[in-house]
């Protein structure tokens, strides 16, 4: 069953990765790319966290569990490069 739609990461992928590498929730995300696709994790973040909590036993922390990095929407390089006017 797919959990992360953007990267097509399944529940089994997350479980297998944890059992193979005996790693932290963060490392499972880095290895599987769950929650790191085009949408930035908006759709699956709570779902990925719930799976990781069950698999790794790590509770959701006070910080956002997946550290949010800008840009929070996909943007073209021309926009990032300041091509747009200073409005």
């Amino acid at each position: 069953m797919i959990i992360c739609r953007c990267e097509e990461v399944t529940l089994e992928d997350i479980r297998d990765t944890f059992h193979t590498y005996k790693c932290s929730a963060r490392e499972v995300k880095l290895r599987t790319r769950a929650g790191m696709g085009y949408c930035g994790g908006r759709t699956c973040r709570p779902a990925v966290d719930a799976v990781l909590e069950e698999v790794t036993g790590e509770k959701p922390g006070d910080d956002l569990p997946l550290k949010v990095q800008p840009p929070v929407r996909p943007v073209s390089l021309s926009v990032l490069g300041g091509d747009g006017d200073h409005a």
Binding site: R5, C6, Y38, C39, R42, T43, P74
Partner: peptide
């Protein structure tokens, strides 16, 4: 479509 309000980019 999945979310229909711009969040999921599907």
């Amino acid at each position: 479509i999945y979310c229909n309000i711009g969040h999921c980019f599907e």
